[in-house]
């Protein structure tokens, strides 16, 4: 896949703390093609959100990007500073945050915030900016967009607000949108509408999405590809359908087993034993080994990236053998494109 709009290579993001350096993102690599949706999956603390912020250069002290590159259309943007980076944000890479209640300023009208976002990159008149804002609202399926521009955020529902946030992200037709758990705070039905909308937008506009989430069900129905993160590293990656049908990394398998929809009612839901390790004291070698049923003697050394023939990878000494059962879906609906 050389047509990747966004390619992340060996990204390292670290936080200086009193207790030492925390490697929140430790050598993460992935790529997204035009109009494709990548699901970046992991538990809280796995480094998935930090990865998203790192791509946009929004890491604040005491954090910093310690290494690696973020290639946007082949150009490394980790080296950009100040205004050069600002011109990338919002214009070429946009971001949507988790809680729509918090991402819009409560004391500014929707229109004011959107006009500011338009004019951050294009020197157009207020009137022209307002027209663009209105069109963007219409594009994400918001009814009577003209009136919404004069509304304050608290006058809209959570789902509407998240649509507004996506509309803002779309204003400059960016190459990539990074969405950090954008539907986690929403009702399931609203979530479904938004996922469908996002799929449509990706297909129609060619915008690539990095969809950061802890929810495998969402990913399975939306994403083209999956990256599973654990303790700052990508432990498994590959086409979404394949990974879900036949996980190669024990951690992915554990996550999949604990999805309730997958599970036979009336029996105990399996869990991944233990809890996410603290970045401050990761075990030697494989970070997942202490919780892993398949762990063996080799796991005290850093596991290799196993490349499989179908474009998949797993970061494991003892990857699970592929199973050849029929592909399964975690939800009844799927928003994945037919391709």
């Amino acid at each position: 896949m050389s047509d990747a709009v966004l390619r992340v290579n060996n990204l390292q993001t670290q936080f200086e703390t009193r207790g030492g350096v925390l490697k929140a993102v430790d050598g993460v690599s992935f790529e997204v093609g035009r109009g494709r949706i990548l699901g970046l999956v992991g538990e809280s603390g796995s480094g998935k959100s930090v990865t998203g912020y790192s791509i946009l250069g929004l890491i604040e002290a005491p954090g910093r990007i310690a290494g690696g590159e973020v290639l946007l259309n082949g150009k490394d943007i980790t080296r950009l500073r100040g205004d050069a980076m600002r011109q990338v944000r919002g214009a070429q890479i946009a971001m949507v945050f988790q809680d729509p209640m918090m991402t819009l300023n409560p004391v500014l009208k929707i229109g004011t915030q959107m006009i500011a976002a338009v004019r951050a990159h294009d020197k157009v008149s207020r009137k022209a900016a307002r027209a663009r804002a209105r069109d963007a609202l219409a594009k994400v399926g918001i009814p009577s967009p003209e009136e919404r521009l004069d509304a304050y955020p608290h006058q809209l529902s959570g789902g509407m607000r998240q649509r507004v946030a996506i509309a803002i992200a779309l204003l400059h037709s960016p190459a990539v949108i990074i969405a950090d758990e954008p539907t986690t705070a929403l009702d399931v039905s609203i979530q479904g509408q938004i996922l469908a909308e996002v799929r449509r937008l990706a297909d129609e506009t060619g915008t690539a999405f990095v969809w950061v989430t802890h929810d495998l069900a969402v990913v399975s129905s939306l994403a083209d590809d999956i990256c599973v993160m654990y303790a700052g590293r990508v432990v498994e990656s590959g086409p979404a359908a394949d990974v879900i049908a036949s996980p190669r990394h024990p951690y992915t398998a554990g996550l999949l087993a604990s999805v309730p929809a997958e599970h036979e009612p009336g029996t105990k839901l399996p869990q991944v034993p233990g809890s996410t390790p603290s970045l401050a004291n990761l075990p030697q070698g494989c970070a997942f080994a202490p919780r892993c049923a398949k762990a063996g003697p080799a796991c005290t050394t850093t596991p290799p990236v196993q490349q499989f023939e179908d474009g998949r990878t797993a970061l494991c000494h003892y990857p699970i053998e592929p199973v050849s059962c029929q592909p399964l879906s975690l939800t009844s609906t799927t928003y994945r494109s037919a391709s």
């Binding site: 971001m95 918090m102 915030q113 500011a116 951050a120």
Partner: peptide, 11 residues
């Protein structure tokens, strides 16, 4: 969050 969002918009 809204300041972070504003920065992410390139303001």
């Amino acid at each position: 969050d809204y300041v972070r969002f504003a920065r992410a918009q390139g303001l």
